[in-house]
Nucleic acid binder design. Structure first.
Length: 293
DNA sequence: CATAGATCCTGTATGC
DNA sequence: TGCATACAGGATCTAT
């Protein structure tokens, strides 16, 4: 569920509760939550206990914590999937219904809990590898492109890759190996802002249109970030359990049959990749084929 | 290789 | 009320 702004809110919220703390205990309550960890639940815990979390990092929708001590050179990696949460909680706080992993520290401070209803998310420990720019990323994150708010994001390369694809633009935006952090909501919002129909193939878009789309993506993300991330679903909460409120600002997402904020035409909803796309049939024409769907 | 579609899971909302 | 179906903000695997 969470896209870049929500994950960044989580990262920033976790940083003070993780940085420079040493893990003393790890409890995995559901094996699926660590299915991407090579070695299983027991190995996951064994690798973490005694290690220090050095900082809280993020690329796109991935979070990670480089390890100090016995796990130096590795990182604890997390992805929230559709319904994951990383919460700060005291040891005495009652277990959440979908509590999957509990992390305890040796300093009597609060626990970190991974809670995930649908278990699409998960945690793992893996090696850090060079990112080609003097830094490091977890091996599990190496295939993910830099995200749109990364100062080293290469705009020209993004434009070139989008225009080289025969795939519909919305699917390109959701491809995390081209640009990371964009999910279903912000893809729809940015396409609406840029007046681009999501079904148009990348190669039909001019360089100027793609550059414009990039700007709108950044604007939508930055606005969401400034408001603490989108959340209209009780599944998403930040580290302290407070809900975001960017949903009030959404122009098209979830607004089927409601008026387009720009032209008042009824917003349409269509099926896409087993979920939904929302768009304005007047502002976002599919010029190539003149289709509305 | 690129691409479109299916799939992992659990819960809630809706309609009959 | 009971039951069936659709849908949920993601990532990845599988046929073609």
């Amino acid at each position: 569920m969470p896209e870049l702004p929500e994950v960044e809110v989580v990262r920033a919220g976790l940083a003070p509760w993780t940085t420079a703390r040493r893990l003393s205990g790890v409890q995995v309550l559901h094996p699926r939550a660590v299915r991407r960890h090579d070695g299983g639940a027991a190995d996951f815990g064994a690798r973490l206990v005694g290690c220090t979390l050095r900082c809280a990092s993020r690329r796109g929708k991935y979070l990670w914590f480089p390890l100090g001590g016995p796990g130096t050179g590795q990182a604890l990696v997390g992805h929230l999937g559709m319904s994951g949460q990383l919460l700060v909680a005291t040891a005495e706080a009652p277990a959440e219904r979908h509590l999957r992993v509990r992390l305890d520290f040796d300093d009597a401070g609060p626990q970190i809990r991974f809670v995930d209803q649908r278990t699409f998310g998960g945690l793992a420990v893996c090696d850090l590898v060079p990112d080609g720019d003097g830094g490091h990323v977890p091996q599990q994150v190496a295939h993910i492109a830099r995200d749109l708010l990364d100062p080293r994001f290469d705009d020209a390369e993004f434009v070139r890759r989008v225009r080289g694809k025969d795939v519909e633009i919305k699917r390109i935006l959701l491809d995390q190996t081209i640009a990371s952090g964009v999910g279903n909501i912000y893809a729809d919002e940015a396409l609406w802002s840029a007046r681009v129909h999501g079904a148009r193939p990348g190669r039909t878009l001019s360089a100027a249109v793609v550059r414009g789309l990039l700007g709108h993506l950044r604007d939508v993300m930055a606005a969401a970030l400034a408001e603490g991330g989108t959340s209209f679903d009780a599944l998403y909460v930040d580290v302290n359990g407070a809900r975001g409120y960017f949903d009030r600002s959404l122009a098209v997402y979830g607004r089927a049959d409601l008026p387009c904020p720009r032209c008042a035409t009824a917003i349409r909803r269509s099926a896409f990749m087993n979920r939904s796309s929302y768009w304005c049939p007047r502002c976002q024409r599919n010029r190539r084929r003149d289709l509305n769907g």
